[in-house]
């Protein structure tokens, strides 16, 4: 019956060649894993680009909640078109985007996201990212990390029964390598209103590098820099990357080359190099014990950053000023 009511939130999960990992991610979005949510409040739109290892549609259908699965043939190597296809399916007033289906989440993500939207329609909700394992997965070969060791880690913390146990077997993701209180470079589990996504033109299909290149960073920055959005960081929650042979999240001798090509593509599209949006975040969350050690590090790093900026006489949230100015300009235009 719940399918008849329009969901408030549509969560887009993009998958490609990551059968086991994506199913774990979907498991973490199911309504019996997410706490204090009404199943009718959200739908999960799974869009998979066909590979030799596609997801098991029946296994998805068996998950509790509203999962809608779409398997499509994609001639290219970028997820941009798949994301826009997913947007066309989404019915929610708010949209969540997990561009990399290998990132599973903690049990409070949906509850807190809906809370943030109740507070502010224009919230941009960012969930900090982590990698499973002791080390950034881009060095997995050097560190002897494998899918088998990851499966062992998940068992050791009794996942999925213990969703917050993920914090016990993880490290910071490079996208927010300096913790949850400093500007993120990107966010792999982010939420904004459908309206905001429309305003930025959703996924720019000119990003054609494998894995989308810097598409995810581009989406994050453009949403963050919309004049009216308010950055809300769910610092007590997380998205956790599982090893799956991703373009930049697994060890490769060609990594430098790949990154360079991605940066060139970004520069060609946006006309300037990328930089992380420096916005003052609003923290929202109820912190579980396993998350607190990460918050401790975040507070230490944030203190150092503030000190450094104060010493240099720089504004730690310079982009905030740019946003305020464009809001004023908009107001000015509206007044006339």
């Amino acid at each position: 019956m719940s399918e008849q009511r329009q969901p408030l939130l549509s969560i887009i999960v993009i998958a490609y060649d990551m059968q086991r990992q994506a199913l774990n991610t979907l498991r973490s979005l199911a309504c019996d894993y997410q706490q204090d949510v009404d199943a009718a409040d959200y739908e999960v739109i799974v869009v998979e680009n066909r590979s030799a290892r596609t997801l098991d549609a029946q296994a998805i259908a068996a998950l509790p909640g509203n999962f809608r699965y779409f398997l499509r043939d994609e001639p290219g190597v970028s997820p941009a078109a798949a994301i826009n296809f997913a947007f066309a399916q989404a019915r929610g007033r708010y949209i969540g985007l997990l561009i990399d289906g290998a990132r599973m989440v903690t049990p409070g993500v949906i509850r807190h996201t809906l809370m943030a939207f109740r507070m502010n329609e224009q919230a941009l909700v960012a969930v900090p990212g982590f990698h499973l394992g002791e080390h950034d997965q881009q060095f997995h070969l050097t560190n002897g990390y494998s899918e088998a060791s990851e499966i062992g880690l998940l068992q050791s913390v009794d996942w999925p029964r213990n969703g917050y146990g993920l914090f016990d077997v993880a490290c910071w993701s490079p996208g927010n390598a300096r913790g949850a209180l400093q500007p993120f470079m990107e966010c792999n589990c982010l939420f904004a209103s459908a309206e905001c996504f429309r305003e930025i033109g959703q996924a720019d299909e000119r990003f054609q590098c494998p894995g989308g290149g810097m598409l995810n960073l581009d989406i994050y920055r453009r949403l963050a820099m919309l004049p009216a959005t308010q950055l809300v960081v769910l610092a007590g929650e997380g998205s956790f990357h599982q090893l799956h042979g991703g373009v930049t999240t697994s060890e490769s001798g060609r990594r430098e080359q790949i990154l360079q090509r991605q940066q060139e593509e970004y520069l060609a599209i946006r006309g300037q190099p990328y930089h992380s949006p420096t916005l003052e975040p609003l923290l929202l969350g109820q912190f579980k014990w396993p998350a607190t050690r990460f918050l401790e590090r975040s507070a230490e790093w944030a203190q150092k950053r503030f000190q450094r900026f104060a010493n240099d006489g720089r504004d730690p949230f310079a982009d905030e000023r740019i946003k305020r100015e464009s809001l004023q300009t908009q107001g000015h235009v509206a007044d006339h």
Binding site: P281, L283, L284, G285, Q286, T292, E296, A302, Q303, A310
Partner: peptide, 22 residues
Amino acid sequence: PILLGSPHPHVLRFLEHSLTQV
């Protein structure tokens, strides 16, 4: 409690203290 607010520089030493109490 559910925490709500901006982690501005002046509150961070109290945030650190609070974390030692968890």
